Simulated assay, not measured.
Amino acid sequence: MAFQIRPASTNFRYGFSEASQLRDFFDGEVNPIGIAFTGRSNVGKSTLINALFGKQTARTSKTPGRTREVNVFTFELFDPDLKEVHPTKFWLFDLPGYGHAQVSKEMSKNWDELMTTFFTSVKEAIRIVNVQDARHPDQDADRQFHHWLSRYPLRCSLAFNKLDKLKTQKDRAVLNKLKPQLSKDYAFIRDIHFISAEKGQGLPPFKSALVSFLLEAQARIEHK
């Protein structure tokens, strides 16, 4: 069977703004399987989520740092040939952006509390997808986030978005040269993708990688 992310199957479930809400959620869910998207403000994270899961799944904004909640959805996988929906309930987590300077100290503290609770609570059946801007990769805020994430026993996919904005081969060569160094610096990175959410470049193999992870995670849990 060739399962895919079922278009427009997302269902908004929760918007968590308090760490206690996240703790209650993970206490109530047994072995949640899913994907969590995170990235610097204004890297096109919401546009990417909408490209993968269907329009209007995530709110897009021209104001960086607007989203300060953990937005939680369920979604489905289906086999278009057999017209079969996978029986597992999968979860999508849209995490608030990091690295935006123009937020209050109170909001920054709340982000720290939310993210600490989230990454302490999630298990290996949740794949972290770190979205970065292909034009400005591995910024200070990204490096700080990856060093922070390294404290947790999690695995991460790295998606360089806005590939269509790189106009020259030289720009793309610079980005490609980063791959071995990033893999060396951050052992928890499992795969690296070059994509354009807006133009659709690189999305099919990225989708396939995400679906493979979900099915493998589901199989591991079933055989425990």
Results as ranks from 00 to 15, higher is better:
180 P>V: 10
66 R>S: 13
48 L>T: 07
73 F>N: 11
211 V>I: 15
219 A>T: 10
148 W>Y: 14
117 T>A: 08
62 K>F: 05
218 Q>S: 14
76 E>I: 08
195 I>G: 03
188 F>Y: 13
200 G>K: 11
38 T>G: 02
87 P>N: 11
185 D>C: 09
76 E>A: 04
121 S>H: 12
190 R>Y: 08
46 S>Q: 03
35 I>R: 01
62 K>Q: 05
164 D>F: 09
176 N>K: 12
152 Y>Q: 06
128 I>A: 03
69 E>Y: 08
159 A>T: 02
210 L>E: 03
199 K>L: 02
130 N>Q: 06
189 I>M: 11
142 D>H: 04
20 S>L: 07
194 F>L: 07
116 T>L: 08
7 P>A: 07
125 A>D: 13
126 I>R: 12
189 I>T: 10
121 S>E: 14
154 L>P: 13
21 Q>M: 11
181 Q>V: 10
47 T>F: 04
97 G>A: 05
107 M>L: 13
44 G>R: 00
145 F>K: 01
46 S>K: 07
54 G>E: 05
80 P>M: 12
41 S>F: 00
158 L>K: 00
128 I>K: 02
47 T>K: 01
146 H>Y: 04
219 A>R: 10
58 A>R: 01
208 S>L: 09
154 L>A: 09
152 Y>G: 06
99 G>Y: 12
47 T>I: 00
82 L>K: 11
209 A>T: 04
221 I>N: 01
71 N>E: 09
107 M>A: 13
148 W>P: 02
156 C>Q: 08
41 S>R: 01
85 V>E: 05
21 Q>E: 15
214 L>R: 08
91 W>S: 01
53 F>C: 03
184 K>F: 08
89 K>F: 00
195 I>Y: 02
